[in-house]
Design a protein around this nucleic acid. Structure first.
Length: 830
RNA sequence: GCGAAAGUGGCGGAAUUGGCAGACGCGCCAGACUUAGGAUCUGGUCCCGCAAGGGGUGGGGGUUCGAGUCCCCCCUUUCGCACCA
């Protein structure tokens, strides 16, 4: 074989061979155990980036390992192909988004293939083709039938950059998730929603199945769903016949309520203005609070502001009359849009009431009997009730129960559960997405398209003006249609679906990507599911990863699947950063993987991605670092190549056939390192996933081999071959092309992937001579060398006898001597 | 503010259960080969000290024969949530 390492030649050769051999094609096979490795599908933005490379390098190492462990491995890839960037490019260049999308897919596919990831390319899918998105429509219709897809007018988040609505999950810090500088605006729009809230409890409960998901992701989802148990209480207005309903989790504090606070958007506010003696002033106050509430949405440190309405309500428990105020921090979207202010026991109310001089009245005292200092802050913990009429003396927990019951019996309130989670708004006023299969008929109203009529195909003759509004609304042939029910004139829905719908079920489609009679093939899903390992970025913790779970639950309810959760194990990898910041065009700190592949080869880039940091942490790109990876592969290649020809015909000694005593000291040393490395990597692949240490150990093995090269004559060919073969197999997880080249050089016809992953021999891996450090009073004073299995008594004797140790023991009395087998000896003196 | 994770050489990082801190790689220093080197190879490289020795894992305290690792307090960074009533 070529003594020089030429990654470009080698990588082209093996990519071709793998493809010819259909090496990564997987078909269901009941006789074999399956393993489904999934990486998040990329958006075809035009170029792959280092984040992709990292993601796929991790997945590929796992997939290749599982193949060699005898699994039938499904490892697919596809394209999240609908979306705004293509449409924006279309507007800019006056070409169709599909042109961009497909040319970008072609281009990224070339780049992706250049990496040599073990994908079954036959299963590739693109979400923007009618054969795929018709099933989005199909799912929508199933949800519509079940009342899970519904239409309502509501205040929604509008991104002026995207020119469309965003779901709540897509708003980050008051700004658009794609445009971090663009604050979302509020608009009133008729929108389609998916009723994810109906699944809130199941999304929470089923987390117990997700025991191999990162705790962090589950916590984030839990917080997002935000379940809280509380009480609704009606306060009657004294001045007019209206109720103001509040939600509280602390009804036990209600005797300390000194005001009721309204969101400026609360519907009762209009009626208060109408009945107010100073309507103009009140109206002005409302507008002022509205404005400051809007700012509060963006600036969390904004001071609490409010204004009295001049109206009062009656506390249904105490009968007391208390004032009604407007407050900028009361959210219309959560609870009822009104809260009871208990300044003594809620820090926000405390801040508010103190600012406006409203009374602060303590009704809870600490359980232990100590006093709570209410001059600086509220006492917000549970405690014992005081000054609370008949409930005085109760503990908070008990009081909440009793007082809620009281409200129910008296008819002025009830126990309830509130969620922070809101329904998923999926309407987008854009073109490049799945048409919503609905028509509006003057006679029949909102009419779903029948299944047989699917797909509702995106028309192609669209003008991309960039003027905003749904482009489909401008396409008369699309909009005007017949009502499927009565045949009369009707108009089509012109919004398209959020692209997160596409990615909510794509991983099912991989199991049979071309099935045209149903969204998924139940028997293929039955074989391959659940996804054994999903790998992707943490940024989808509460976007994609919650939508996906929701979809599966709907699929379970419609009988499509039989399980509640699609992904058994999730891994979230860290970002690739440069100069301390995420790589981005705007920062100009992008390192192009394709360029790196051209310079160093894909194996080097991939190896570096795995070596530079443990996978869950952020990885700082280093130009010098990748040089190191390249050097290592060079060294490894040349090392194996030097011996390949001589060893090609030799049959390797699989470890078991050797008796340890048959080996020369040099052979023993070589095989020890070999099997130690094999042990480390194997154990790590089974769960810990610190690939950086796996690569480091493999480097150590190469270093050991290089060091022993001078003594090659002391190593039998079969032994050297075993060591080199195992080295190559280890390498094949991280740098598969060069590994296959070397594997072939060592005399194998089949790629390394077709080999059974070797088992380490614990006898060979064991150290026979152990160096034990000896501490005297906690300080390292000497080292002794003993054979493995030396008795403790002998170790004690040897430790004392060590010259340096003896010096430190001189004239002292040994109080204690601790021998930790295999670790150290610790002597304590007086 | 709340929650989580993290803090180790000049840098990325290692130390799986409380047991030799700094594996592996980068960088740097010295040397070899060379017309040349940003190639390759050899040696060195936590700090102070000629050495013996001493110090050292964000800071302070504690438990222990022994702490990067466990406990308490504090600081910093990153991420998530942020008036959720």
């Amino acid at each position: 074989m070529d003594p020089q390492y030429d990654p470009q030649v080698i990588e082209a050769k093996w990519q071709e061979r793998w493809e010819e051999a259909r090496l990564f094609d997987a078909e269901p096979d009941a006789a074999r155990k399956k393993y489904y490795v999934l990486e998040m599908l990329p958006y075809p933005s035009g170029d792959i980036h280092m984040g992709h490379v990292r993601n796929y390098s991790i997945g590929d190492a796992l997939a290749r390992y599982k193949w060699m462990r005898g699994y039938n491995v499904l490892h697919p890839i596809g394209w999240d192909a609908f979306g705004l960037p293509a449409e924006n490019a279309a507007i800019k260049h006056q070409r169709h988004p599909s042109e961009f999308t497909f040319s970008y897919i072609d281009r990224m596919k070339v780049q992706l293939k250049r990496l040599g990831i073990s994908y079954d390319w036959r299963r590739e899918i693109s979400t923007c083709v009618p054969e795929y998105y018709r099933w989005n429509q199909w799912f929508f219709l199933r949800m519509f039938e079940r009342g899970l897809a519904y239409r309502k007018k509501s205040r929604v988040n509008w991104c002026s950059q995207c020119e469309t609505v965003l779901a709540n999950e897509q708003v980050v810090d008051g700004c658009c998730w794609r445009h971090e500088e663009t604050p979302v605006e509020e608009r009133e729009l008729e929108q389609w929603f998916l009723k994810i809230t109906a699944y809130a409890d199941r999304l929470l409960d089923d987390m117990k199945v997700l025991d191999r998901w990162p705790e962090r992701v589950l916590t984030m989802q839990q917080n997002w769903i935000g379940k809280s148990k509380g009480t609704l209480v009606d306060f009657r207005l004294n001045e007019l016949d209206e109720l103001v309903r509040v939600f509280t989790t602390r009804v036990d504090t209600i005797y300390g309520c000194t005001a009721v606070l309204l969101s400026p958007q609360h519907p009762v506010v209009e009626r208060l203005i109408a009945r107010s003696g100073s309507a103009a002033a009140l109206k002005e106050a409302v507008e002022g609070i509205k404005a400051s509430a809007a700012r509060a949405g963006v600036d969390p440190n904004l001071e609490k502001q409010g204004a009295p309405t001049g109206f009062t309500v009656r506390n249904p428990y105490s009968g007391e009359s208390i004032p009604v105020w407007l407050a900028n921090f009361v959210l219309m979207e959560y609870g009822t849009g009104a809260v009871m202010a208990v300044p003594a026991h809620d820090s926000r109310d405390f801040e508010f009431c103190r600012a406006y001089g409203l009374p602060i009245r303590q009704v809870i005292v600490p359980k232990g009997g100590e006093t709570a200092d209410l001059s600086r802050a509220a006492f917000i913990e549970y405690g014992k009730l005081v000054n609370s009429g008949p409930f005085s003396g109760l503990n908070s927990e008990e009081a909440i129960e009793r007082m809620t019951l009281e409200a129910e019996q008296q008819g002025f309130g009830q126990g309830t559960i509130q969620y922070r989670l809101r329904d998923w708004g999926i309407s987008r006023q854009r073109y490049w997405g799945t048409p919503i299969p609905i028509v509006y008929c003057a006679g029949c109203g909102v009419v779903p398209m029948p299944d047989e009529s699917l797909p509702v195909v995106l028309p192609t003759n669209v003008k991309f003006t960039g003027r905003g509004g749904s482009p489909l609304a401008e396409v008369e042939e699309f909009v005007s249609t017949c009502c499927p029910k009565c045949g009369g004139e009707a108009r089509r829905e012109t919004d398209t679906m959020d692209t997160f719908v596409d990615s909510s079920w794509y991983f099912y489609r991989y199991t049979d990507p071309n099935i045209s009679t149903a969204p998924i093939n139940a028997s293929a899903v039955g074989y391959w599911f659940p996804v054994d390992q999903y790998i992707g970025g943490i940024e989808h913790a509460i976007l994609h990863l919650i939508y996906m779970r929701f979809f599966t639950k709907v699929m379970q309810d419609t009988g499509l699947v039989t399980f509640p959760e699609p992904v058994a194990r999730l891994f979230t990898q860290g970002m690739v950063i440069k100069d301390g910041a995420k790589m981005s065009k705007s920062k100009g700190n992008i390192v192009d993987p394709t360029e790196m592949c051209a310079r160093y080869g894909a194996d080097t880039v991939r190896l570096y991605m795995l070596f530079a940091a443990p996978p869950e942490r952020d990885l700082e790109w280093s130009d010098a670092g990748i040089e190191g990876a390249a050097r290592f592969l060079n060294r490894a290649y040349r090392l194996v190549a030097r011996h390949a020809e001589r060893l090609a015909g030799i049959v390797s000694a699989r470890a078991q056939s050797w008796k340890v005593n048959d080996l020369t000291a040099t052979e023993r040393r070589l095989l020890r390192k070999t099997h130690q490395t094999l042990r480390h990597v194997t154990q790590d692949m089974e769960g810990r996933w610190h690939f950086n240490t796996d690569v480091a150990m493999t480097m150590e093995l190469v270093n050991e081999l290089a060091e022993l090269e001078a003594k090659t004559h002391e190593i039998r060919a079969e032994v050297l071959k075993e060591a080199l073969e195992y080295l190559v197999l280890l390498l094949s997880l991280f740098a598969p092309h060069v590994a296959d080249e070397l594997w072939e050089g060592l005399g194998h016809d089949e790629p390394a992937l077709r080999t059974v992953w070797p088992a380490w021999d614990s006898q060979l891996a064991a150290e026979e001579e152990i160096e034990l450090p000896v501490q005297v009073n906690g300080k390292l004073r000497g080292r002794i060398h003993v054979a493995a299995g030396t008795s403790e008594e002998e170790i004690r004797r040897r430790a004392r006898a060590d010259e340096k140790v003896a010096q430190h023991l001189d004239g002292k009395q040994v109080v204690k001597m601790i021998v930790v087998p295999g670790k150290l000896v610790s002597i304590v003196t007086r």
